[in-house]
Design a protein around this nucleic acid. Structure first.
Length: 735
DNA sequence: ATCCTGCAATTTTTT
DNA sequence: ATTGCAGGAT
């Protein structure tokens, strides 16, 4: 059943035989068009699902689209190549791996793996990670890859030392990754291009295979991504790209809006369809959005309209600080829920940076309001999860040196820096993996006898697991890993912290169990390999923490493509939104404006904007001025408010701030006692994990403030906590 | 030589 | 919250 479509939407859905560019404004039914088109291809043009490639940018968007296509068709479209660019590429590369010097078991290195690899390579090359920050090197290399710049080209272009070193690391890293049978995120997009260049018959095959190609969020594609879909679609020329230049917010990741112009040049017969009717927002909200975006110079230009004329005014509120802001948001939500019969899940709180979620979480928890945070700390980033995944990776791909380095040291088994460094040197000398080098440790008299036997035991253990892996699912394999490493005991020895981690391990097993069941005959890779692919490509953004029926908290970036009846855009201060770092270039400035536009257009019925007169950033109290995006708003569309705290009710403002920030100490020492919440010996506090307790000692200042808390729970006892990270609250109940 | 403790740095946005 | 480093204990 195809839902009702307007003329432009129908044109895009049913357009047959040729390239199609859909300029889809915010809320114009873009996802509906894409899903309807996929369903249309399958149902009415008899295209087998396995010959359709539909790529999106986030896993969320992909699963949403799959859900909706399933809904329209009434059954799961088996074999459909639908997913993120990275996951679709990974699937393709697993089949073709051997042609480009990999095995189908190749590992995907995530950002953390790559960063620690860069650190290792810097040291091997004799560069100090202090002088050449790995993060900076990684950024330069990644930008180069995204722009299809080779190591030698980067070296030629290099303007400073960092870039020269980056070029060298880029060069070395390419070889090291290949030897480790591993690819990083950028490689997933680049290797298909290499494959097609070196094996034109492969390109011909995929060109013939894919009858139809669809691309969502086309404005966010980088050069490699565009070339990939362009090449695949060049033969059949049935390619449909959907995008909105006003919502291009990933320039920092290499996205080039230019691809939208190039599409029209490369496919000169491309049909252009504009979706300009907005079905989401009231005209008040839409006019506000248009006002904000209209100040940008570089636009393709389009006019959005809505039939939902009028609507509640946009509320712009000045608050005292981030705690006051959070309390104000809370009170508006509570009022809306009681008076307007909204549900908590109708609300979203958007912010520029992840760090801003904290005050909201504190206030919601204190008032027992259900909420979910999307994308703060990734499940897969936790130490215990990374440890176990490292074992899994090593079992599947023995050349994965990063996995070896991690697994062999955790749990501690007596292999330390020195032994590991020696194995590393030998592995470079012999041009073999760490694992294979370790397997002949008995022939290395330079190693301590103890290290020798430990390494051999470790190698044997992994090999036994590899034997087992032929039969076993990812979940069973993980269970074996946990058993032979005695991992739960290792965690249990860490005390209460460890108990929490054991819970996470159980969750990992549950997640892996689901993967083991699915089987896809089209796909040559084993369930375990596919599980690892998913684990590597699943980011924090895919996992919401908390109550799915509650208020949603996320960054404005994450919100793209989503909508809520009521949206709060918070932290609307100059320097924060727009972020000052981004304002260094004109490009960056325009992108911030587009980000604001994205945020505003998420709202269906009501939009709130708020800013704080002062805000603690990295433990420092910073004065704030309203965002320049607020200046542009026409008076007729907005209602200005301020919280009572703004009128000098400092006691309330100070009390509303989570304890733990000794904020003013560096700004103004005299006012310290007056304005900054601080810890007092004897005060009762509560910790998320450890429960309630009493402060017995305080030391340090600013962001280094430390407190010793004697917790009531006997198992926990006294603990020293870094206030800035502990997230302590005042214990109101027992106060 | 390994491991433990304490200190410092990290975070703007994400695959 | 995690990681890596330095220095001291084992």
């Amino acid at each position: 059943m195809i839902q009702e479509l307007n003329d432009a939407q129908r044109e895009a859905v049913e357009h047959d035989g040729g390239p199609l560019l859909v300029l889809a404004g915010a809320g114009s039914g873009k996802t509906r068009v894409l899903t309807a088109r996929v369903a249309h291809l399958i149902e009415h043009r008899n295209v087998p699902p396995g010959r359709i490639m539909a790529v999106t940018f986030t896993n969320r968007a992909a699963s949403e689209m799959r859900r909706r296509v399933t809904n329209i068709l009434g059954c799961e479209p088996a074999g459909l190549w639908m997913g993120t660019f990275h996951s679709v590429s990974a699937r393709l590369l697993r089949r073709e791996a051997h042609r480009i010097g990999f095995t189908p078991q190749f590992t995907i290195y995530d950002e953390d793996d790559r960063l620690s690899l860069i650190r290792r390579l810097l040291k091997d090359g004799g560069y100090s990670p202090k002088a050449y920050r790995p993060a900076a090197i990684q950024y330069v290399v990644s930008q180069a890859k995204n722009r299809l710049v080779s190591p030698s080209e980067l070296r030629e272009q290099a303007e400073d030392d960092v870039q020269r070193v980056a070029a060298e690391i880029y060069d070395v890293m390419g070889r090291v990754l290949r030897e480790a049978n591993a690819m990083d995120f950028d490689d997933l997009l680049l290797h298909p291009l290499t494959l097609f260049r070196d094996y034109p018959d492969r390109l011909t095959r995929y060109q013939a295979h894919f009858q139809s190609v669809l691309v969502d969020e086309f404005q966010d594609t980088n050069r490699a991504q565009y070339l990939l879909v362009k090449q695949i679609a060049e033969k059949n020329r049935d390619i449909c790209v959907v995008g909105d230049d006003d919502q291009s917010i990933y320039g920092w990741r290499g996205a080039e809006v230019r691809n939208m112009y190039d599409f029209q040049r490369d496919f000169s017969d491309a049909q252009l369809v504009r979706l300009e009717e907005n079905y989401r927002s009231t005209s008040v909200i839409l006019d506000t959005a248009n006002e904000v975006i209209s100040e940008n110079m570089n636009r393709l230009g389009k006019t959005l309209f809505t039939s939902r004329v009028g609507g509640d005014l946009v509320v712009v509120t000045a608050t005292a600080d981030e705690g006051d802001e959070a309390e104000w948001v809370l009170s508006e939500i509570v009022e809306n829920v009681t008076k307007r019969f909204c549900e908590y899940k109708d609300f979203a709180i958007l912010y520029r940076t992840n760090a801003q979620s904290r005050p909201f979480e504190d206030v919601f928890r204190r008032n027992v309001i259900p909420y979910q945070v999307v994308g703060s700390v990734s499940f897969y980033a936790r130490r215990e999860i990374r440890d176990l995944v490292a074992y899994l990776r090593l079992v599947v791909n023995p050349a994965d040196d990063q996995a070896f380095i991690r697994a062999v040291q955790s749990p501690r088994r007596g292999v330390g820096k020195t032994s590991l460094a020696f194995v590393g040197r030998m592995s470079v000398a012999w041009n073999r993996s760490f694992f294979s080098t370790a397997s002949v440790a008995d022939r290395m008299p330079e190693l301590q006898p103890r290290a020798r036997s430990v390494l051999l035991d470790f190698v044997r253990m992994i090999e036994r697991l590899r034997e087992e892996s032929r039969e076993a699912s990812a979940a069973t394999l993980l269970e074996s890993i946990i058993e032979v490493t005695d991992y739960e005991n290792y965690l249990a020895e860490e005390g209460l912290d460890g108990a929490d981690r054991i819970e996470n391990v159980r969750a990992l097993l549950d997640g892996a169990a689901e993967w083991s069941e699915e089987e896809d005959p089209e796909d040559p890779s084993s369930p375990t390999e596919r599980y690892l692919t998913a684990a590597a490509l699943t980011t924090s953004a895919d996992h919401a923490e908390g109550d799915p029926e509650g208020v949603t908290l996320m960054t404005a970036h994450m919100a793209k493509g989503l909508e809520w009846p009521v949206v709060f855009m918070t932290g609307m201060e100059d320097g924060l939104f727009p972020l000052s770092r981004s304002m260094e270039t004109q490009e960056g400035g325009e992108e911030e404006r587009r980000l604001a536009y994205v945020g505003i257009t998420r709202a269906q019925d009501r939009l709130y904007l708020s800013w704080a007169r002062a805000r603690r950033r990295s433990g420092q109290l910073m004065p704030g001025m309203p965002s320049r995006f607020l200046d542009a708003l026409p008076p007729g569309l907005i209602e200005e408010r301020r919280t009572s705290s703004v009128f000098g009710d400092f006691a309330k403002a100070a009390a509303s701030v989570p304890v733990g920030w000794d904020a003013l100490s560096t700004v103004n020492d005299e006012n310290e006692s007056q304005d900054s919440p601080r810890y007092v010996r004897g005060e009762r506090v509560r910790h998320r994990k450890f429960g309630s307790g009493q402060i017995v000692d305080v030391s340090g200042k600013g962001r280094h403030l430390k407190v010793v808390v004697s917790f009531d729970e006997d198992e926990v006892g006294p603990r020293t906590l870094l206030a800035a990270y502990a997230g302590l609250e005042r214990d109101w109940e027992s106060a």
